[in-house]
C-alpha cells in the first residue's frame, strides 16, 4: 500500500492547483487550456470512483442482451472483453435485429441509455442535470 495522500487526494490537489493558481495567472488560450486540464483531472477522479460499478452494469446489460458470460477480472482484460461484446452488439444492430418496435428494442435502448448515462456521470453531469436525469 502506498502512503497517504490517496490517489483522490493527490488528484484533488493537482486540480485545485490548476483551477486556483494557474487559471487566474493566465489568460486567453492558455487559461482556456488550464481550465480544460483541471476538468480532465476532475473527470479522472470521478472515473476511478465509478469504474467498478459502471463496468458491472455494462456487463450485466450485455449479458441480458447477448447471453451470460463470466466477467473477466483485471482492467485491461475487462476492457477488451467489453469491446468484443459491443462489437457483437453493433453487428446485430446493423443487421436490423432491433429495427422494429419490440421488447428487444426496448431492452436495447434501455441498456445503451444506462451505459451512456454512466459515461456522462463521469464526463458531463450537467447534461443529465439539464434533462432531469440525475435522479
Amino acid at each position: 500500500m502506498q502512503d497517504r495522500p490517496t490517489i483522490y487526494e493527490l488528484l484533488r490537489s493537482v486540480e485545485r492547483f490548476l483551477r486556483d493558481d494557474v487559471v487566474p495567472a493566465t489568460d486567453g488560450r492558455r487559461q482556456f487550456l488550464a481550465r480544460v486540464a483541471a476538468n480532465a483531472i476532475g473527470l479522472v477522479e470521478r472515473e476511478l470512483q465509478g469504474e467498478a460499478e459502471h463496468a458491472a452494469r455494462e456487463w450485466a446489460g450485455l449479458d441480458a442482451l447477448l447471453g451470460e458470460e463470466p466477467m473477466p477480472g483485471g482492467r485491461d482484460a475487462l476492457a477488451d472483453a467489453v469491446r468484443v461484446r459491443n462489437d457483437a452488439l453493433c453487428a446485430r444492430i446493423r443487421a436490423g435485429e432491433y429495427d422494429a418496435a419490440s421488447a428487444a428494442r426496448t431492452a436495447l435502448l434501455a441498456h445503451v441509455r444506462a451505459v451512456v448515462r454512466d459515461k456522462l456521470l463521469v464526463t458531463n453531469r450537467a447534461y443529465l442535470e439539464a434533462d432531469g436525469d440525475l435522479g
Binding site: 480532465a40 459515461k119 456522462l120 458531463n124 434533462d131
Partner: peptide
C-alpha cells in the same frame, strides 16, 4: 498532445445521449 483534443474524445457520449433522446422522442 493537446489536452483540448484529448478531452474532445470524452464529449462523444454527449452526442450519444442526445441521439437517444431524439430517437426516443424526448
Amino acid at each position: 498532445q493537446s489536452v483540448e483534443l484529448a478531452s474532445i474524445g470524452r464529449r462523444t457520449a454527449e452526442t450519444e445521449w442526445e441521439l437517444l433522446n431524439l430517437i426516443e422522442g424526448k
